[in-house]
Design a protein around this nucleic acid. Structure first.
Lengths: 210, 210
DNA sequence: GATAAACATGAATACTGATTCATGTTTCAT
DNA sequence: ATGAAACATGAATCAGTATTCATGTTTATC
């Protein structure tokens, strides 16, 4: 039985990209279901069975496109990174003044987060499920941020100061406000959050000299 | 055999506090091992077997003091909350000026985080393992923070602005810098991080009017 | 110094859920 | 039309591990 025959079957595509329109669609369905399910229940509670049933396919189908549960998770983190950076870059396109760019970028980020709460939570969980992906996510983010701050500084658009630490602090603000939206369900409109944060970032909280 | 006898044995202390010095010590050992193991490997990878072996007790002993694995986790989150708030309150004791208090509090927080990296990661993971505890942690934190900002505002020590949003933003900065220490292993000394963050918080990044 | 409660043990239980596999079905190039 | 590759199925496997339990040992009280 098992008339294997040809010794070198070409079955082992590493990432297993689909080669057909049908396959493409199925893979997308699984990825999207994974995003929703993992985002909602967390990595561990999100069983393959639940993900596949949510995607409308059989359990085994999952393993045609992903080697492990972790793999689909990592892919989601990467996707989130790409999307967020793209969204922000787009929104700050052509804005010359750094402080204005800051405001536009923060607004775009918060809007994105509100539209994709699942992806947001997935990135948070990556710290434990896939630390490497987590670091890459924030490091990539920081690189761009710091570069922007540095050149703005050289152009005299912002005051001097350690660009790296500032980048982290500003990312921390964005993250905290995003969490307000997604985790704490604040009622405040994004514009209001941005207004307050922008004032803090631009002017600080020290009272004006009297 | 098993001459049970008395029908109503008083075995069911809910939280199961120890009643003996020995018990006290064992419970502490388990809690401390759990902190290290869960902090290092994350909630799911941290098996009861590993925790107890790390604590130097048998597996069953765990269930004398904790009803479930989740219970010990929640307790750690609570402990972290108490410790952090206590540490910060202590460090800002008697400082009248809000901005100075901000600096002292941030320094104390970062030093605490560096000293307890495990607890820090545990709080992060609580978002998925015990969302209620996560919210309580940050809500309690925010309450104090916002109150402080509000009264400082009334006293004219800081400029006017939405205290709640500001509280979240400032907590975001602290958290991001803490993460630099614990997750990204930055080489920068705490004092330097605080210096940059403080300048940002007090003055913002807008260049001084020329 | 005896008795009961408290504490400790670690093997056995019980269950969950990721991954595999033998067996179809669909797609597509020829 | 037809054979091979791609895709799909879902039951079976397999491993890990939280929790329980029957059985000892220690502690403290009388």
């Amino acid at each position: 039985m098992t008339s294997a025959g040809h010794a070198e079957a070409p079955q082992r595509t590493p990432g297993n990209q689909p080669k057909t329109a049908r396959g493409e669609a199925t893979r997308k369905a699984i990825l999207s279901a994974a995003e929703r399910v993992i985002g909602a229940k967390g990595y561990n509670e999100a069983s393959i069975g639940y993900i596949t049933s949510e995607a409308g396919v059989a359990q085994g189908t999952f393993y045609i496109y992903f080697k492990t549960k972790e793999e689909v998770f990592s892919e989601l983190v990467l996707e989130m990174g790409r999307l967020v950076r793209h969204t922000i870059a787009e929104s700050t396109q052509g804005i010359q003044n750094r402080l204005e760019a800051e405001k536009a970028g923060l607004t775009a980020f918060l809007e994105f987060v509100r539209a994709h709460p699942d992806l947001y939570r997935i990135v948070q969980e990556a710290l434990f499920v896939d630390p490497g992906a987590y670091r890459e996510y924030y490091t990539a983010f920081e690189d761009g941020y710091r570069a922007g701050l540095s050149s703005a500084q050289e152009a005299g658009q912002i005051s001097p100061g350690d660009a790296e630490t500032r980048a982290w602090a500003l990312m921390g603000i964005a993250r905290a406000l995003g969490e307000q939206l997604v985790v704490f369900d604040t009622k405040k409109p994004i514009s209001e959050l941005v207004e307050t944060a922008y004032d803090l970032i631009a002017n600080g909280i020290k009272p004006a000299e009297s």
